[in-house]
Design a protein around this nucleic acid. Structure first.
Length: 285
DNA sequence: TGATATGTTATCTT
DNA sequence: CAAGATAACATATC
């Protein structure tokens, strides 16, 4: 799913692609997918593309932003020339990106160089919002960026864990406590740190807390280098329509019954907070 | 055919 | 009232 590394990859690529361009038109093919007044941003120049948690922020010269949340199945694809794209060789399901717009295209943002940004979203959970400042997003309620060792300090982590007996996995996925970790990277980080996802947060030892923090930061930053995860059944693509490559480095997520890479035990699957949770019953205590 | 997957938020419960 | 638990959202897949 689009979590911090996927959104950061898009942010970086989009910044390179559209910084300095002027928005010429916004086509809203699905009204639920667009919130706010398009007039506020049409004709305005893009001054940069930023990110907060899993939200992409296209900053405009008048101080407004186009804020984009991909939720479960959103894609952002940029094309300079309409329907000129690398042939899709993958034969896997509805998320392959070929000719655009396709039946999942909800919004098309056009720029003054003829380029177009396509927002595709099969399940229509995602959105693009026109906002005049970050407060409108409730930005101040979000926790520190989970891949940033300066903002996500060990002291802060100990503090939030000590307050609750909730399963540790739910705490690291809580965007108000820590911003950017979703289901895939929560599973992977807990595996790397050898911690049972059900373990009550306040019961983590100092060493476990430090190990988990380092695992989260390391895994998120590695996944950014790999341009995100586009595993089977995942919608995420780079702005070119190509997959990321971090799915090749995933060790437990979605691997029910497969051998643990460390000890060979079968990976187990349970539900936590209604979400699939994969772990090694032997390595994670 | 109906159960399943997922991030976030709204709503209900304790 | 806050924290925790759970349902709802939409839709393609198996």
């Amino acid at each position: 799913m689009p979590e911090l590394p996927e959104v950061e990859t898009l942010r970086l690529q989009l910044d390179r692609a559209i910084k300095g361009l002027r928005i010429s038109e916004i086509q809203i093919l699905k009204s639920k997918s667009f919130v706010g007044e398009p007039k506020e941003v049409i004709g305005k120049k893009v001054v940069g593309v930023q990110r907060r948690a899993k939200i992409t922020l296209i900053r405009l010269e008048n101080g407004f932003y186009l804020a984009i949340h991909l939720k479960l199945t959103g894609q952002l694809i940029y094309r300079k020339e309409e329907n000129k794209f690398k042939k899709v060789t993958e034969n896997n399901g509805p998320f392959a990106v070929g000719e655009l717009p396709n039946k999942f295209t909800r919004i098309i943002i056009s720029f003054d160089n003829g380029g177009r940004l396509y927002f595709n979203d099969m399940r229509i959970f995602g959105w693009i919002k026109v906002i005049r400042n970050l407060q409108e997003l409730g930005e101040e309620k979000l926790g520190p960026e989970a891949n940033d060792d300066k903002k996500f300090t060990l002291e802060y982590f100990k503090n939030i864990l000590g307050r609750t007996g909730k399963p540790i996995k739910l705490v690291i996925m809580d965007q108000e406590k820590l911003a950017g970790v979703g289901n895939i990277y929560a599973n992977e980080a807990l595996f790397a740190a050898g911690i049972d996802p059900r373990k009550p947060a306040k019961k983590l030892s100092d060493k476990e807390t430090a190990d988990l923090r380092e695992a989260i930061i390391k895994i998120l930053n590695e996944a950014i280098v790999h341009k995100g995860s586009s595993d089977k059944d995942e919608a995420y693509r780079q702005i070119t329509g190509e997959k990321g490559s971090h799915q090749n480095y995933i060790l437990v997520y979605g691997r029910l019954g497969q051998p643990c890479p460390k000890c060979g035990s079968a990976i187990k699957r349970i539900a936590l907070g209604g979400r699939g949770t994969f772990y090694c019953p032997a390595c994670q205590k």
